[in-house]
Nucleic acid binder design. Structure first.
Length: 229
DNA sequence: CCATTAAAGTGGT
DNA sequence: ACCACTTTAATGG
């Protein structure tokens, strides 16, 4: 794969911040990695070596909670950055990252990326905006999840996936197992399953094995509206 | 296609 | 909330 300007990710941080000429150098320093479904490409606690961008596919970023249970920090797809928090700070990644389907990754070594940040201010500024945005989302989330019931957390999670990734004729395009869904919502799979059956019986969603189709996002949004103020 | 294993779902404490 | 059990789906030879 020669030049990256064929990359379909308009939100790619590297592509956005370089012109076609200087981009040649970026591509030389980039490693393309192929990740199989289920493969972990960042191990929690392992030494930081670089930064990843999702070229195509789906991945989850997780952390082991104090109780030893997995918490999904965020879901990532085409163009998203992974490993930015471990990057250039401390010596180990605070998170794990796992491919949820066959996924291609762009990878840059720490040394190269650091040099770019120090010399290329538009990239640095763009990264800063990204960090600020992530912090904002993180705060908003912990604030509302402290007050939400299990049902509300599951609804919030479903809407979040709907808003970020959308749905097709089958349902939400970011397909997760019940357990993974529970890990995103910060609950247990039994509870998540019960909320899902309730929502199904109320005609708000439709479930066909692991495909979840959102039937009434308006009503669902209304339920959690007060937390987003 | 069947057998084995993993995940979903349910009910009881 | 937690655990144990049944049912159903996914996997792989």
């Amino acid at each position: 794969m020669g030049d990256c300007f064929s990359c379909q990710n308009s939100n790619c941080f590297m592509k956005k911040n370089y012109d076609a000429h200087s981009y040649g150098e970026v591509v030389k320093n980039r490693f393309l990695l192929d990740c199989k479904k289920g493969q972990s490409f960042i191990i929690e606690g392992s030494p930081v070596q670089g930064i990843y961008f999702v070229y195509s596919g789906r991945a989850k970023v997780t952390r082991t909670g104090s109780n030893g249970k997995e918490q999904v920090i965020r879901l990532a797809t085409d163009g998203d950055i992974i490993g930015h928090r471990g990057f250039n700070r401390g010596t180990v990644y605070p998170i794990a990252a796992t491919a949820l389907e066959n996924t291609k990754l762009c990878y840059f070594h720490n040394k190269y990326f650091t040099e770019e940040l120090q010399t290329h201010s538009t990239l640095t500024y763009d990264m800063m905006l990204f960090y600020a945005d992530e912090l904002d989302k993180s705060e908003a989330r912990s604030k509302k999840y402290a007050q939400m019931s299990v049902r509300e957390k599951v609804i919030d999670t479903l809407l979040d996936i709907y808003d970020r990734f959308g749905q097709d004729s089958k349902g939400l395009t970011f397909v997760l197992s019940r357990t993974e869904l529970a890990n995103v919502a910060g609950t247990k799979s039994e509870q998540t399953i019960r909320v899902l059956t309730a929502l199904k019986n109320e005609g708000l969603i439709q479930c066909e094995s692991k495909y979840i189709f959102m039937l009434n996002t308006v009503a669902l949004r209304a339920e959690i509206e007060k937390f987003n103020l």
